Simulated assay, not measured.
Amino acid sequence: MMDEYVERVARVLELDPAFSELPPASNLPRRRDRLLNIPELEMGMLDFLSLYGCELQYVIGEKNSVMGKVMQPLNRLRYEIRFIESGEECLSEITREDVRESLLKAIQSKKETLPIAIWNATWGIQEIEPLFTLAKGNYPVAPEGNPVSDLAIDANRLNDTVAMLLAGNLSPSLDFVGEVHQRWQAEHRAGQLVNSARLLIARLGDGTALLKERIEGRPLCLNGKPNNQSNIVQSMFFSVYIEKVQPYLATVKRAQEQLIDPLRRLATMQQSVMTAEFRRWQSRHLEAMGDESLWAQLDGAIADHTRAWQTLLEQCGLRPQA
Rank of each mutant, 00 (worst) to 15 (best):
8 R>H: 07
9 V>Q: 00
10 A>L: 05
20 S>D: 04
22 L>M: 02
23 P>E: 02
23 P>I: 09
24 P>D: 01
24 P>T: 04
26 S>E: 05
30 R>H: 09
30 R>W: 14
30 R>E: 12
38 I>R: 05
40 E>G: 08
43 M>G: 12
52 Y>R: 05
58 Y>I: 10
58 Y>F: 10
63 K>F: 14
63 K>W: 10
68 G>V: 04
69 K>A: 08
71 M>H: 05
72 Q>C: 09
74 L>Y: 09
78 R>A: 15
81 I>V: 09
84 I>V: 12
86 S>A: 13
89 E>A: 09
90 C>G: 08
94 I>C: 06
94 I>E: 02
94 I>H: 02
101 E>N: 03
103 L>Q: 04
105 K>A: 13
106 A>C: 12
106 A>N: 06
107 I>T: 08
107 I>H: 06
112 E>P: 02
114 L>Q: 10
116 I>S: 05
118 I>D: 11
118 I>H: 06
119 W>K: 06
119 W>S: 12
122 T>M: 12
123 W>I: 14
123 W>R: 03
124 G>D: 13
132 F>K: 00
133 T>C: 01
139 Y>C: 00
141 V>P: 00
150 D>Q: 03
152 A>L: 04
153 I>E: 11
153 I>P: 00
154 D>Q: 03
155 A>P: 00
158 L>F: 10
159 N>C: 04
160 D>Y: 13
161 T>F: 12
163 A>V: 14
164 M>I: 07
171 S>W: 15
171 S>Y: 13
172 P>Y: 14
173 S>M: 10
175 D>G: 07
177 V>Q: 03
180 V>T: 07
181 H>M: 10
181 H>D: 08
185 Q>R: 06
190 A>G: 01
192 Q>Y: 04
198 R>M: 11
200 L>M: 10
201 I>T: 04
202 A>P: 00
210 L>W: 09
210 L>A: 05
212 K>R: 04
223 N>D: 15
224 G>E: 12
224 G>M: 06
226 P>Y: 09
226 P>K: 11
227 N>D: 15
228 N>V: 15
229 Q>G: 07
231 N>Y: 15
233 V>I: 11
233 V>R: 02
235 S>C: 11
237 F>L: 14
240 V>W: 13
249 L>R: 01
256 Q>W: 10
257 E>A: 08
263 L>Y: 08
271 Q>F: 15
273 V>K: 02
273 V>D: 03
274 M>V: 10
280 R>T: 15
286 L>D: 04
286 L>I: 08
289 M>L: 09
292 E>T: 02
296 A>L: 10
306 T>C: 06
311 T>N: 08
315 Q>D: 07
317 G>V: 12
319 R>T: 14
322 A>D: 08
